[in-house]
């Protein structure tokens, strides 16, 4: 169960604001984690806490394929991201590295900044504990659920390669 305080963002949050290009050559997620969302709110890395949840508008993560975007969010400790839709490369990257993402238009519209929200990844159930409302995210197809259950792409490939 993932539980945390909500930070809200608008539509089309792109990877240039999630993780500006100047940090692109840094591949250590811990190094870039403090700079997440810098392009929208330079203080976000100071205000937010590990475990917090991002609720955003449509097409979250659009733009470049940089994994410093989901990687930075994960390294910071963002508990989950809820949005009506995600940009496709961001969605793949998030699933691959084990950053919880949920597509749920109703939850994304209703949930307010500061609410405390609980998320169950296995079922896609989202509970806004502040308002008491519950929501159901669109389930991932079985194919992706397997990948998520395996812990992302790295363990999946290790298994395929027969690496212990």
């Amino acid at each position: 169960m993932i539980r945390g305080r909500v930070w809200k963002f608008g539509d089309d949050v792109n990877t240039d604001v999630i993780m500006p290009g100047k940090y692109l050559a840094m591949h250590d997620p811990a190094e870039i984690a403090p700079y997440i969302m810098e392009g929208i709110d330079p203080d976000f890395g100071k205000k937010a806490k590990p475990g917090d949840i991002i609720v955003a508008g449509k097409n979250f993560g659009c733009g470049s394929s940089r994994e410093t975007a989901p990687g930075g969010l994960k390294a910071f400790g963002i508990g989950a991201i809820i949005a009506p839709t995600f940009a496709r490369i961001f969605l793949r990257n998030a699933v691959n590295i084990g950053l919880p993402v949920l597509e749920c238009p109703a939850a994304a519209a209703d949930i307010r900044e500061g609410d405390v929200v609980a998320v169950e990844m296995a079922t896609g159930r989202i509970t806004d504990e502040t308002t008491g409302r519950t929501y159901q995210a669109s389930p991932f197809p079985p194919f992706l659920q397997e990948l998520i259950a395996a812990g992302g792409l790295i363990p999946y490939v290790r298994r395929r390669l027969g690496v212990a």
Binding site: S65, N93, N96, V157
Partner: peptide, 28 residues
């Protein structure tokens, strides 16, 4: 790289991925 969709101009299917996906396809 996200702009890998460019190669569609020659009549190919082409799409961009992040570096974990890239590693997966390089391995498998």
């Amino acid at each position: 790289d996200s702009h890998s969709c460019t190669y569609g101009a020659v009549g190919a299917f082409s799409t961009g991925v992040g570096h974990t996906d890239l590693a997966g396809v390089l391995a498998l």
